[in-house]
């Protein structure tokens, strides 16, 4: 597999949210606005790339029996780092993401890539895989955030679209929890019908 393929696989063909259907909890909960979705995606990408990197470096020294605790230690260290960094430099985003930043630890997408890929692959490939999967996750959250914010709040990145009359009475339903399920369901249906088959 070429380097480009490793990168794009996680981005589109095996997109964590839309194709593999993993990491759905943050995808549903933190996609009510574009900014939240994008921020969450980048935070997860950061953790994914660095945990893949470290686990790939250590892969020959990790005894098989304790690999899961070690993966979790490495992942939670990077989650804590990004948690502190966001608190210090992006307090607004930090408060918007709330409990979902610490919960990146248990995002099965990250542990999944560590277990299935980084612990068996070279350092460069692991970084590319982490980057691809992370940006695929970011892409999914940003798409969902865009749809939900435009319909549910009448704005895109806080800027009014469709004029003030829509802004004052938008489809509030879309930024609430049921809207997340609806959006992901419709997107998944569209992807199944038009995209997935061609990529196979």
């Amino acid at each position: 597999m070429t380097k480009l393929n490793i990168f794009t696989r996680g981005l589109v063909k095996e997109n964590a949210v839309f194709v593999l259907m993993i990491g759905l909890c943050p995808a549903l909960a933190v996609s009510s606005t574009v900014r939240d979705g994008f921020g969450m995606g980048l935070a997860a990408t950061f953790v994914l790339v660095f945990s893949n990197l470290i686990i790939s470096i250590l892969r020959k020294n990790i005894p098989n029996e304790v690999r899961i605790p070690i993966f979790i230690l490495v992942i939670s260290t990077f989650v804590t780092i990004i948690d502190y960094m966001m608190q210090a430099f992006q307090p607004d985003l930090y408060r918007a993401l709330g409990v979902f930043v610490p919960l990146i630890v248990v995002n099965c997408m990250i542990l999944g890539r560590a277990e299935a890929y980084a612990s068996k692959s070279s350092v460069v490939n692991s970084i590319l895989d982490g980057l691809g999967t992370g940006l695929g996750f970011t892409l999914a959250l940003t798409i969902m955030g865009t749809i939900r914010e435009i319909l549910g709040n009448g704005t895109f990145l806080g800027l009014t679209v469709f004029g003030e009359s829509f802004r004052s009475a938008p489809v509030i339903f879309m930024i609430m929890s049921p809207g997340a399920f609806l959006v992901i369901g419709i997107l998944k249906a569209l992807i199944n019908k038009y995209v997935k088959r061609e990529l196979r």
């Binding site: 250590l58 005894p63 304790v66 230690l73 490495v74 804590t80 780092i81 608190q87």
Partner: peptide, 25 residues
């Protein structure tokens, strides 16, 4: 030993990050 070394390394790294970000927070 592996688990111990990894845990201690993580703790040391985190304490540095904490010391760096704490005043900012």
């Amino acid at each position: 030993i592996t688990l111990f070394v990894v845990a201690v390394t993580c703790a040391v790294i985190l304490s540095f990050v904490y010391a760096f970000t704490e005043p900012r927070i």
